[in-house]
Each structure stands twice: as structure tokens, then as C-alpha cells.
């Protein structure tokens, strides 16, 4: 009798988050972290951005973006430490820090998006 495992569920989050971050992150990062700060493109005003993120659908989009990407990153980073650096004796602690960190980030995202006036 094999033990029940959380791995399939975590892998599902990993794979969904991998797709979401692959699709959406390059353009997000290009615009907000490179093109706007470096003046390559004219950024929208802060008021425009506030209006843009107000609709519930956009907030759900941003929440899913954060939530799935965080669990994708947590899962992958955990295995980077496990396979790459072969840190196996700290497995439990690493799991708690990775998925715990992702959970904290997800709650923070939900809180911030609820606070949007």
C-alpha cells in the first residue's frame, strides 16, 4: 500500500504556473521593468493604471498570475536545491519555506487586490 502523496497536486500547480508565467511574464517585465523605467516607451499614468486594475476581472487575472507563478517557482526552486545542490537533509525545512513563501505571497496578493479602491 503506497502512501498518499501531495506531489500530483503540487505538480499540477507547477505546470499551470509554468504556462501562466511563460505566457505573461516576459511582456509584463519588459514593459514595467525595462521599457518604462528606461524611457523606451511612454508609460501610462499612475491614475490610468489604477483605473486599469480596478475591474474585478483584472484583479482575478492579477491574482491568478501571482498565485500560480508563485507555486510554480516554489516547486521548481525546491527541486533546484534538491537535484542541483543536493541539499537533501534539509528537505522538510526547504518544503516549508518554498510552499510557505508561495502561500504568504498568494495571501499578500489577495489582500492587496482587495484593497484597490
Amino acid at each position: 500500500m503506497s502512501k498518499r502523496s501531495n506531489e500530483p497536486f503540487l505538480w499540477l500547480l507547477f505546470s499551470a504556473g509554468g504556462s501562466v508565467s511563460a505566457m505573461l511574464m516576459p511582456v509584463h517585465l519588459f514593459l514595467f521593468a525595462l521599457a518604462f523605467p528606461l524611457g523606451w516607451l511612454d508609460p501610462p499614468s499612475d491614475e490610468t493604471l489604477l483605473v486599469l486594475i480596478r475591474p474585478p476581472l483584472v484583479r482575478v487575472y492579477l491574482f491568478v498570475f501571482c498565485f500560480l507563478s508563485l507555486f510554480h517557482a516554489a516547486h521548481r526552486f525546491r527541486f533546484t536545491l534538491y537535484d542541483g545542490l543536493q541539499i537533501k537533509h534539509l528537505n522538510e525545512l526547504i518544503n516549508v519555506l518554498c510552499y510557505g513563501g508561495a502561500a504568504v505571497g498568494t495571501v499578500a496578493a489577495a489582500y492587496l487586490l482587495c484593497q484597490v479602491p
Partner: peptide, 9 residues
């Protein structure tokens, strides 16, 4: 990927 989420937040 984690860093980008942090920036977004």
C-alpha cells in the same frame, strides 16, 4: 519568476 511576482505586488 518569484522576483517578478514580488515586483508586481
Amino acid at each position: 519568476v518569484g522576483w517578478t511576482v514580488l515586483l508586481t505586488l
